[in-house]
């Protein structure tokens, strides 16, 4: 385990760790924008530069591996000044319309601008302007806000294995593109949305439904499949307006299209919230007791007339393991048949 010092503090870092990782383990903060702990280092935003004794120029801590005896300084007037220039450059090519941005209050770039007190911009100049034309159903891509951190590209490749997007063009015109700049047409897992540090990628259905400070966050489990990903519902009033997932969960914050964007059913007026029994060709709302009685009576009648094997049970992959266990137990023990299965496919 290499031993190094960071700002004079001795730190033991695991072999192969980067200077940034070592610093964060020692609770020393280094600002970053393009870094994501679960993705390969990029070294694009240049905010994480530090001074290392013996190296004549500042280096990016996210790409530099630790070595024995290294002496790192994470903050100095020169380093902070360089970071400020980098931020000013980013903001000189940004719409700066936080007032109407979905991500305001939950945006790393905004946070950095606040930390470094950037208001006036001495590098003001041309800004990228794009026509908004992506007609995909789920993801709003406002690439004028994109800071080219590359996280979306990496998550799509390294986590999702889809490679739906990549860097295109060169120079100031460089841009995150789909193939031939067609509308995004991918799995819509939204992993890219979850790692974007700015308002460049958001859910289309989130629009004007309420920002971070307006919502109550409720941690729960996704009801779509037996994997049971941990999700966080963003609830405004009694409405679920967004679903996210925390990075420190078993699914590491990654979700699929259903978990992330398929939440509209919760507040759908078509959703059944009370049991119904059909009488004379019409559904009538009844109490749970009445519904259970009805089911039990019908099952008993069928079993008496045709035997237990005339009955089959089909449960849902949306149920948890525990629920499915209870269900097969009921069909096998109470009804008395092995005709039991569930829809493993959705």
């Amino acid at each position: 385990m290499p031993k190094l010092t960071i700002n004079g503090k001795t730190v033991d870092a695991p072999e192969g760790a980067t200077v940034l990782e070592a610093a964060r383990m020692a609770e020393i903060d280094i600002p970053t924008l393009c870094h994501h702990p679960k993705l390969t280092p990029f070294g694009g935003c240049r905010l994480c530069i530090v001074e290392i004794k013996g190296i004549p120029r500042p280096v990016t801590s996210c790409t530099t591996p630790v070595s024995e005896g290294m002496e790192v300084t994470t903050s100095s007037p020169q380093i902070e000044d360089l970071r400020k220039t980098v931020l000013e450059l980013i903001l000189s090519d940004h719409p700066n319309d936080c007032m109407v941005c979905e991500r305001a209050g939950d945006c790393t770039l905004q946070e950095m601008a606040y930390t470094y007190g950037i208001r006036e911009n001495k590098f003001a100049g041309e800004r990228r302007v794009y026509e908004k034309k992506d007609g995909n159903p789920f993801i709003e891509r406002d690439l004028e806000k994109c800071i080219m951190c590359g996280r979306c590209v990496k998550v799509c490749r390294e986590v999702q294995g889809v490679e739906a997007i990549d860097f295109g063009y060169r120079g100031f015109k460089a841009k995150i593109c789909t193939a031939y700049e067609k509308d995004l047409n991918c799995e819509f897992c939204g992993q890219c949305v979850s790692v974007c540090p700015t308002g460049a990628l958001t859910g289309k259905m989130w629009s004007l439904k309420g920002r971070k400070k307006d919502v109550r966050e409720v941690d729960t489990t996704c009801a779509y499949c037996g994997t049971g990903c941990n999700i966080t519902l963003h609830v405004k009033g009694n409405e679920v307006v967004r679903v996210t997932s925390r990075e420190d969960t078993l699914n590491e914050g990654w979700l699929c299209v259903k978990g992330r964007f398929g939440y509209k059913f919760i507040n759908s007026p078509d959703r059944l919230t009370k049991p119904l029994i059909r009488r004379d060709g019409r559904f009538e709302e009844v109490s749970w007791e009445e519904a259970f009685d009805c089911i039990a009576n019908k099952l008993t009648e069928i079993k008496a007339a045709f035997g237990a094997d005339a009955i089959g049970g089909l449960s849902s992959a949306r149920c948890t393991n525990e629920e499915n266990y209870a269900f097969q137990k009921m069909i096998r023990a109470a009804v008395g048949t092995n005709n039991v299965d569930h829809c493993a496919r959705l």
Partner: peptide, 21 residues
């Protein structure tokens, strides 16, 4: 250089553009 920057890092991608301006 501005047109040939790969666009990966901020000082080169945006900085050279500002120099040019």
């Amino acid at each position: 250089t501005q047109a040939e920057s790969c666009g990966k890092c901020v000082p080169c991608r945006i900085g050279t553009k500002r120099l040019l301006e």
